[in-house]
C-alpha cells in the first residue's frame, strides 16, 4: 500500500527560530519594534514600519478575531489530500497584526467573521508545534 503523503512541516531558519521555539513552549511570539512601538508579522530582519534594525521578540496575547476565511477544496499539496475541506483563516490579533492560520475546535460551517479566537498549539511533528486558533468559549 502506498504511503500517504504527509502535510508539510516547517523547517525553522535562524530568523524564525524564536517563533517556532516559542510555539514549542505554547507561546505565540511576535516581533515588536521599540523604536516605533509596533508589532509586525511575518518574521523579518528589521521593522517594516520604521526600518529600525532591531526587533524584539515578545509574547503576544494569543487573542484575536476572525477577519476572513476560506474553506479549501482544491488539493494543492498531496499532504492535504485527506484534509479537504479544511479552513484557512486570517486572524486579526489584538496586537494589531493579521496572521494566517487555521481555526480548530469547530466545524467549518460554524466559522463566522468577527468571532473571538484564542491561540492553541498543535504538533505537526515530534519537533515542530504551530499556533492555530479556536473560538473563545462562552
Amino acid at each position: 500500500m502506498p504511503q500517504a503523503a504527509t502535510k508539510p512541516v516547517p523547517i525553522p531558519d535562524d530568523l524564525s527560530a524564536p517563533f517556532f521555539d516559542g510555539a514549542r513552549d505554547r507561546k505565540l511570539m511576535l516581533q515588536h519594534c521599540s523604536a516605533c512601538d509596533s508589532w509586525s508579522f511575518p518574521v523579518r530582519e528589521r521593522c517594516p514600519h520604521c526600518f529600525a534594525a532591531k526587533l524584539t521578540w515578545r509574547q503576544a496575547s494569543g487573542r484575536g478575531t476572525l477577519y476572513t476565511f476560506t474553506v479549501m477544496h482544491q488539493v494543492m499539496n498531496p499532504g492535504f489530500a485527506s484534509a479537504v475541506p479544511y479552513n484557512v483563516a486570517q486572524v486579526d490579533l489584538d496586537e494589531g497584526v493579521r496572521m494566517v492560520s487555521n481555526v480548530v475546535g469547530t466545524g467549518n460551517d460554524a466559522l463566522r467573521i468577527g468571532m473571538k479566537l484564542e491561540v492553541v498549539f498543535e504538533d505537526v511533528s515530534d519537533e515542530i508545534r504551530i499556533p492555530k486558533f479556536r473560538p473563545v468559549a462562552g
Partner: peptide
C-alpha cells in the same frame, strides 16, 4: 518549507486561490 514559508504551507495556504 523554510521558516515562515513553511508555516504557510503547514496551514495548507497554497497559491492565490485561498
Amino acid at each position: 518549507l523554510g521558516g515562515m514559508a513553511g508555516l504557510r504551507a503547514a496551514y495548507g495556504n497554497f497559491g492565490a486561490n485561498a
